[in-house]
Structure formats: structure tokens, C-alpha cells
């Protein structure tokens, strides 16, 4: 009994360390890719100085950010100002617990895995709000308010599109949803839900063309204008981790999760397929960001309430009827 207990504890500690290490690694890879891809889209070489093709740049950037002074504005709400970056970091790390990287490579397969992810990641908005409000800065406040309005609106079509898939699988467990896709991946069965989810996920991660909370040309940097050093980089880490979470939900629910052509690598084969799909989606998000201009705020809201929510509702209704009839 005693050994079983310690085994489970050791497993949890290892999982926590791996998850946090992965968040940092993911941010480094994505930061590099984003800067490099954006540079190439804009026909410039991008990072070239540190290491071959600037590959070590993000490592140096990380060291620089750790070394920087944390500046708290004079009239800021100090405890909340310091708390906000940590708060933004937590809700994007927790979902990694239930994401299935492979048939066995998962920290925990909860019965309500999908609900867990959605519940926990809804706290992200809270962090953005606190950051924007406690900075006592107009730009931060505007950024935070835009972010909340956008996140709350786009959460509705997002949840409705996910619900359509859950209706088919009849389970919230991530492995269960993957198991239900043994014949056909759900982006073929649910193309409308997939499109709605993808669009909403751009808004949920505050990325272009829906990056109004941090629109540089009007709000300097939005809610994290006043943050420096590690405070700022925690927000960046959270943004990239959030992208990863959103893309892995898309992969699990619509693209068959770790399913793919079997590779002769044992347990690592499915994990490779999973990462290929997730990073494919993330590259797609970067591609979109640097291709399309930013929308106006009224366009953003109209698009959500007048098109996406009705479409998501109709899709849900049709799915319900079809599920009932079959």
C-alpha cells in the first residue's frame, strides 16, 4: 500500500514538472516560429543573429526577461498587479493534465475532461481583467474590456459547436471522444462545428484577425502594457500555451486525436501524430495572423451574434435530430 501511494505521488510530481517544462518549451518553439514565419511572409529574413538562423534567440530572450526589473506603476493596485500574470498562467497549464498526447501518454483521463478544460480555461479572462484593471492605465483597461466582451461572446458558439460533437460521442472523456472516431474523423461529420470552433478559437486566444485586446496601433499592447520582465513573459507563455490547448481540443474532437497511420515507434507513434496535428493547426493560426488585417470591433461582435451563434444553434439542432433518428 505504502509503495502504491508513493508511486502515485511521484507520478503526479513528474507530470507537473513535465507539463510546466512543456509550457516553456512550447512558448520558445512558437515564439521562434511566429517571428520567423511572420518575417518570411513579410519578405525579410527575421531572426538571424544568435545561432544558425537565429535558433537560439528565444533562449537568450528568456534569460533577458528573467534578468529584467519588474516595474510596478505608482498608482497600480500592487497585490493584484503582481497576481495577474500568475493567474493567467495557471488556467492554461491545468488543461494539459487531461489532454491525451497518446493512448497512454496522458496525466489523467477524467470522465468530464472536456468540461474540465472549458471550466478552467474560462478563468483566463479573469486574469486579463485583473491585469487590465490593476494597471490603472487607460490602454490596459480598454484592452481588458475588449478582451472580456470578445471572450464571453465567442465562448457561446465555441461551446455550442463542441456540444454537437459530445452529442454524437455521448461522453466528455477525451479518450472516449478519440475512441468514437475509429471509423471517421469528426471534421467530416461535423464540418460546420469544426469551422465555428476554429473561428471562435482565434477570438478566444486573442489572435489576429481578432486581436483587438492587444491592438498595437491603438492600445500600445492592451492589457499587458504596464508589464515588464517576467510579468510580461508569463502573459506570453500563457498565450502560446492557450493556443496549444485550443488546438489540441480541435485535434481531439475533430481530427481524431492521436489516430493516424501506424508508425513503427511503439507508443511514441500516436504521440507524433498528435503533435503533428496540433502544431499544424498552430502554424495555420500563425499563417492567418500574418495574412489578414484586424477586424473592427463592431464587425467582430456582429459576426459572432448574428452569424456564428445562429449557425451553431442550427447545427446543434440538426445534429440532435440526426442522432435521435439513427
Amino acid at each position: 500500500m505504502e509503495t502504491a501511494v508513493s508511486h502515485e505521488l511521484v507520478r503526479m510530481v513528474i507530470a507537473a514538472v513535465l507539463v510546466i517544462a512543456f509550457v516553456f518549451l512550447n512558448a520558445m518553439i512558437m515564439g521562434y516560429l511566429e517571428r520567423k514565419i511572420s518575417a518570411h511572409i513579410q519578405r525579410r529574413p527575421g531572426l538571424m543573429e544568435v545561432g544558425p538562423h537565429g535558433i537560439l534567440q528565444l533562449l537568450i530572450d528568456g534569460l533577458k526577461l528573467i534578468g529584467k526589473q519588474l516595474i510596478v506603476p505608482k498608482d497600480a493596485d500592487k497585490p493584484l498587479f503582481r497576481l495577474a500574470p500568475l493567474l493567467s498562467f495557471t488556467p492554461v497549464v491545468l488543461p494539459l493534465i487531461v489532454i491525451p498526447f497518446g493512448p497512454k501518454l496522458q496525466v489523467r483521463d477524467l470522465d468530464i475532461g472536456l468540461v474540465f478544460i472549458l471550466a478552467v480555461s474560462s478563468l483566463n479572462v479573469m486574469a486579463i481583467l485583473i491585469a487590465g484593471w490593476s494597471s490603472n492605465n487607460k490602454y490596459s483597461l480598454f484592452g481588458a474590456m475588449r478582451s472580456v466582451a470578445q471572450n464571453i461572446s465567442y465562448e457561446i458558439p465555441m461551446l455550442l459547436s463542441l456540444l454537437a460533437v459530445v452529442m454524437i460521442t455521448n461522453t466528455f472523456s477525451m479518450q472516449g471522444i478519440i475512441a468514437a472516431q475509429n471509423k471517421i474523423w469528426f471534421f467530416i461529420v461535423q464540418p460546420v462545428a469544426f469551422l465555428i470552433y476554429l473561428t471562435a478559437s482565434f477570438a478566444e486566444t486573442n489572435r489576429a484577425p481578432f486581436d483587438l485586446p492587444e491592438a498595437e496601433s491603438e492600445l500600445t499592447a492592451g492589457y499587458h502594457t504596464e508589464y515588464s520582465g517576467m510579468g510580461f513573459s508569463l502573459f506570453m507563455l500563457a498565450e502560446y500555451a492557450n493556443m496549444f490547448v485550443v488546438c489540441s481540443i480541435a485535434t481531439v474532437l475533430f481530427l481524431g486525436g492521436w489516430r493516424g497511420i501506424p508508425l513503427p515507434l511503439g507508443d511514441y507513434g500516436p504521440a507524433i501524430w498528435f503533435f503533428l496535428k496540433v502544431y499544424g493547426l498552430m502554424l495555420f493560426m500563425i499563417w492567418v495572423r500574418w495574412t489578414y488585417p484586424r477586424t473592427r470591433f463592431d464587425q467582430l461582435m456582429n459576426f459572432c451574434w448574428k452569424y456564428m451563434i445562429p449557425f451553431a444553434l442550427v447545427n446543434l439542432l440538426v445534429t440532435a435530430v440526426v442522432v435521435k433518428l439513427i
Binding site: 477524467l110 468530464i112 471550466a119 474560462s122 479572462v125 484593471w133
Partner: peptide, 30 residues
């Protein structure tokens, strides 16, 4: 656990954020 998740999703994730949103329109930190 389902109720716990719903509590977070609805009350912390939505209701509290709506209240905060209301406050942000009207007050400054100090």
C-alpha cells in the same frame, strides 16, 4: 465533480466576470 466544474464555468467564469466588467466601466483602482 460535474457540479464543481459547472460552478467554476458559470459562477466564476461568467457571473463574476460580468460583475467585474460592470465595475470596470465605472471605477478606477484607487
Amino acid at each position: 465533480p460535474f457540479l464543481a466544474m459547472m460552478q467554476i464555468l458559470i459562477y466564476v467564469g461568467a457571473v463574476c466576470i460580468m460583475i467585474v466588467f460592470g465595475i470596470m466601466v465605472g471605477y478606477t483602482p484607487t
